[in-house]
Design a protein around this nucleic acid. Structure first.
Length: 228
DNA sequence: GCTCTGTGTTGTGACCCTTT
DNA sequence: AAAGGGTCACAACACAGAGC
């Protein structure tokens, strides 16, 4: 229809196994080299290079040159949101080994979605914040309460941007693996950052899954009543 | 500055699938 | 069956960093 947007070209970019793998690997906000992305997508560097060029041309990825490496990352958080939305509709990929099953389980349990937490941990954390009265649920989404602003300060999350959020809707995504909301945006990013600082969670190599540390498991249970 | 090494890109052809 | 499009791997090449 004239004047309407044409989603076919962009949908075509997502509709390839290799490109989808590349985008999913980058959806945790990391920047990875072409060689690393080729390994993760199980294709040769030349094949990955071809796909990366297409994704760059479409503006889905941006690259930063560092020495002889080029590090690719998602150009816009909205792209990660699109990936998560598609993932919610997609069938679960079959696993062919114990290792693949373990990685899949880890990704569902806790993972990075751009700059914030997703998976069971992200969803449980969101619900726990509602239960504690930090966030209030409404038809539009979540609002931060006045108590929530104080609680965030006590928890070690400060910043004018967050303090001004009292009357604003807190951004959230529907989690593809849990089919429930997890908080995103500035608050989601700040919370994830704080949990990394506290060493309650750590990144895992070669995956967007995050791992709960022993102290993190105890602290999440005591502070939020979360059992993972 | 030269050489070696590692990494990424480009060109080419084979293969597969879909459409006509 | 032929044509066209897409994906992939291979080979060749370019580029940057390290070591001398």
């Amino acid at each position: 229809m004239p004047g309407d947007v044409n989603i076919a070209p962009i949908a075509l970019l997502f509709a390839d196994q290799t490109r989808a793998s590349i985008l999913q690997e980058l959806s945790d906000g990391q920047a990875l080299s072409a060689g690393e992305l080729a390994r993760r997508a199980h294709v040769t560097p030349s094949t990955a290079s071809t796909h990366l060029a297409k994704l760059m041309d479409a503006g889905l990825l941006i690259a930063e040159k560092q020495g002889k490496h080029r590090y690719y990352r998602i150009a816009d958080p909205a792209i990660v949101q699109a990936i998560e939305a598609l993932a919610a509709l997609a069938p679960v990929r079959q696993v062919h080994s114990l290792r693949e099953a373990q990685i899949a389980q880890a990704v569902r349990s806790a993972r990075m979605c751009s700059t914030h937490l997703a998976g069971k941990l992200g969803v449980d954390l969101t619900q726990a914040l509602v239960n504690k009265g930090v966030l209030a649920a409404s038809e539009e989404g979540y609002y931060m309460t006045s108590y929530g602003q104080q609680w965030l300060c006590d928890f070690g999350i400060e910043g004018e941007a967050l303090k001004r959020r009292g009357l604003e809707v807190v951004s959230h995504h529907i989690d593809w693996s849990e089919h429930r909301p997890h908080i995103a945006g500035a608050l989601g990013a700040a919370l994830a950052q704080r949990l990394f600082e506290l060493q309650w969670i750590t990144r895992t190599p070669f995956s967007r899954a995050v791992r709960l540390t022993a102290s993190g498991q105890l602290s999440l249970r005591d502070e939020f009543g979360i059992h993972i």
